[in-house]
Write a protein that binds this DNA or RNA. Structure first.
Lengths: 217, 217
DNA sequence: CCTACCGATCGGTAGG
DNA sequence: CCTACCGATCGGTAGG
């Protein structure tokens, strides 16, 4: 066995974290651009600067790569949203909804690749992997449902269908990821404020319409 | 050449319209379920009850099948939306917006497979085919932009960003296609009314908030 | 981390 | 509308 061969086998047994990170970065970008089914392991390997079999030092399969990206993407979004709600007192549900919608829009604009992959490629997961991702997604939906529900219960919002309203709000955020560009006139914060105000006014109790104004954050 | 062979060649030269229709029906369903890239011509042929080469009596290629479905889906939606707006006088832009949002939601709920394919598979089109589809999509967007813009100009709506608002409304409709089920409690019309009211109230001039009510259709 | 390789599947064609 | 077939590409493995 030559020195060269030995070095390469050692490299395979002591995988570099940096390489793994590059694999995930390029996989996310390529999955978002072309879709999971149209991205081959050859594409990913080439982007990273490896041969295909070398990828298997770092990942278990193409599918596990997708699963990891989807789990991280959903978890990160959920954490951001929970932090946003927690920053506003619970007795002001309309303001909580405002920051929730705003943070959701901002996150989707800032992490467009994550959004595209997370919401387009669910059907590509194995049946065994899917429940975990759906569960995370449901937690996000529940956060919106709960906040809207408390605004209704407090009499600050009209008696809207909580689930349908929540789904509409979530769709607006995902939509932003499909058209937002960094070189546009509006920042993610601008867009977040714009949608948050429309959503709150859309369900606001009419008696509050004249005096409601955007929360000072 | 046997009688049997001759019959089959004749059948190929005189394709039945019914067969072509079945191919498009099953292709739409399968593309919506699994995605274009994950649907093989073998899947489609099997669903229709043919062998793969027989498909080519009716279609030019897999890609042309997708293009035809996307062109039809977008054209049909545009026609429905234009009809909805035209049914309301032009001097009532808020009511026009209401019926526009409502019809958009209803159409997406009723034609979920079309929605899924039309908005997910654009990247699968050839560069030569894509402009035609993007042009149809832009006409739909313009219809919303124009209606919202006239509501703003008339002073009935706040001075919102017309494009961002239109994209939000369109996203809500597309979103409905992903979660609506025929066996739910709400009809497409219910959901259409719900979202239409939220959208109109969301941009309504505050001075009109107390007295605005859903248009009688 | 690489070379060499494999079975499966793909869209599509030839020819009748 | 079918049988027979093809070159390209896929995810992944053996072995060092």
């Amino acid at each position: 066995m030559s020195q060269d061969f030995a070095d390469r086998i050692v490299a395979a047994r002591a995988p570099r974290r940096e390489t793994k990170s590059l694999i995930y970065q390029h996989a996310l970008r390529l999955f978002a651009e072309r879709g999971y089914a149209r991205t081959s392991l050859r594409d990913i390997a080439e982007a990273v600067g490896l041969e295909v079999p070398s990828l298997y030092t770092h990942i278990a399969s193409k599918q596990s790569l997708l699963f990891d990206l989807m789990e991280f993407g959903n978890s990160e979004l959920l954490a951001r949203l929970e932090a946003a709600v927690a920053a506003v007192p619970g007795d002001r549900p309309l303001d909580q909804l405002y920051v929730l919608v705003r943070e959701n829009v901002i996150s989707h604009c800032r992490h467009r690749d994550q959004t595209k992959v997370v919401f387009t490629e669910i059907r590509e997961l194995a049946d065994r992997q899917r429940p975990r991702i759906l569960s995370l997604r449901r937690s996000i939906e529940d956060l919106f449902r709960d906040t809207i529900g408390r605004a209704v219960d407090a009499g600050s919002a009209r008696e809207v269908d909580v689930t349908v309203t929540a789904f509409g709000v979530l769709a607006i955020g995902r939509g932003a990821a499909t058209w937002y560009h960094d070189d546009g006139e509006l920042t993610p914060e601008d867009i977040g404020d714009l949608y948050a105000e429309q959503v709150v006014r859309g369900i606001l109790a009419p008696k509050l319409a004249a005096k409601w104004s955007r929360p000072q954050l």
